[in-house]
Amino acid sequence: MNNVKPRIERIHVSVPVKLSLLWASLLSFYIYNDYLLFFMPGQIEGMNAGSFGPFGEVTDLKLLAVAAFLAIPISMIFLSSILPSSVSRWLNMIIGPIHGISNALTLLPFFTAPLFFKFIVSIEIIVTLLILWTAARWPKQDG
């Protein structure tokens, strides 16, 4: 009788696909964290009153700035897969840390931030570090 156990096949995942998946994960954590914030007392009432949290009153310009800032990681999901390797590598090594720093800045009111928020932001920072690490270790191509 054959006692050899079948092995689970390891599939090679290319660097561009890994980066795209990391960016998609990061955006998922952004959405999840924002969603959970809705359950904090006074959050929805503040939004209805026109409050934009630590940014003060809601304005079109502030909403445009946030939309533009979030359009970058959203675009990186696709761009990481289609850009030439050298361009994608450097773009990920620049934009990843920028978003990691912006995530860290949301922890400045650390002692007042809810525990779930600190937890998810910590994961977001780890994901941005993984983006940097993955891009920095991108294998050189022969040719």
Rank of each mutant, 00 (worst) to 15 (best):
N2R: 14
N2E: 13
N3P: 15
K5P: 03
K5I: 15
P6Y: 12
R7D: 05
E9H: 12
R10S: 06
R10N: 08
V13Y: 05
S14I: 05
P16N: 03
V17G: 00
V17D: 03
K18Q: 00
K18G: 01
L19P: 01
S20Q: 03
L21N: 12
L21S: 07
A24D: 01
S28N: 08
F29W: 03
F29S: 01
Y30K: 01
Y32V: 05
D34H: 15
L36K: 15
L36H: 15
L36T: 14
L37R: 10
F38R: 09
F38M: 05
F38P: 13
F39C: 03
F39G: 11
Q43M: 09
I44Q: 12
E45N: 09
E45G: 07
G46Y: 10
M47F: 13
G50Y: 07
G50P: 05
G53H: 06
G53N: 07
P54V: 07
P54M: 02
G56F: 14
G56V: 09
V58S: 11
T59K: 07
D60N: 14
L61C: 03
L61R: 12
A65G: 08
A68K: 03
L70F: 08
A71D: 08
P73H: 01
P73N: 01
I74R: 09
L79D: 03
L79I: 03
L79E: 00
I82T: 15
L83C: 06
L83E: 00
L83V: 00
P84V: 10
P84C: 03
S85K: 10
V87H: 12
S88F: 04
M93W: 13
I95F: 15
I95W: 13
H99T: 00
H99G: 01
G100F: 06
G100D: 05
I101E: 01
S102C: 04
S102L: 01
A104L: 11
L107N: 10
L107Q: 00
L108Y: 10
P109C: 04
F111I: 11
T112V: 09
A113H: 10
A113I: 08
A113W: 04
L115T: 15
F117T: 02
K118Q: 07
V121K: 13
S122P: 13
S122M: 04
I125Y: 04
I125Q: 08
V127P: 02
T128Q: 02
L129R: 05
L130H: 08
L132R: 06
T134Y: 01
A135V: 14
A135H: 02
A135T: 05
A136P: 03
R137P: 05
P139N: 08
Q141D: 11
